[in-house]
Amino acid sequence: MPERAGAVGLVLVSHSREVAESVARLAAGLAGGGDLAPVATAGGTPDGGLGTSADLIAEAARAADRGAGVAVLADLGSAVLTVQAMLAEGDELPRDTRLVDAPFLEGAVAALVTASAGGDLSAVAEAAGEAYTYRKI
């Protein structure tokens, strides 16, 4: 898929590799036909089990970084805590990496649409967070 130049990168961190990769595919599919912002996933542990890997997160953040900032969405518990702990250290993730407070799937779609439209990191974070306000009943 063609990539939009200079876009905010997106990192999806899930306890499960399949979940992270599927949500990335779903977001790309729903984000429309134009050039997309880079998306990288850090799902599960390196051996394919359920859990969180700081090494995979760092690798994904580097892979998604184009210099315009990286928005990280995480699913639950250790995924969220690991990203927060890495951000607190300051040197393990690219500069301008931000953990976005958003529902994982809905937030990923909103973030990718916004980043692919050229939104900056704040706009991407805001769009993803707004997904919390979408009520289903």
């Binding site: 700081a54 702990a85 890495m86």
Partner: peptide, 21 residues
């Protein structure tokens, strides 16, 4: 602490890792 964050794989990793770091 750094080793715990990167190897535990559950919430205890960032929590104990942060404690030690």
């Amino acid at each position: 602490g750094r080793t715990l964050v990167s190897t535990v794989g559950g919430a205890a990793g960032p929590l104990f890792g942060t404690l030690l770091r």
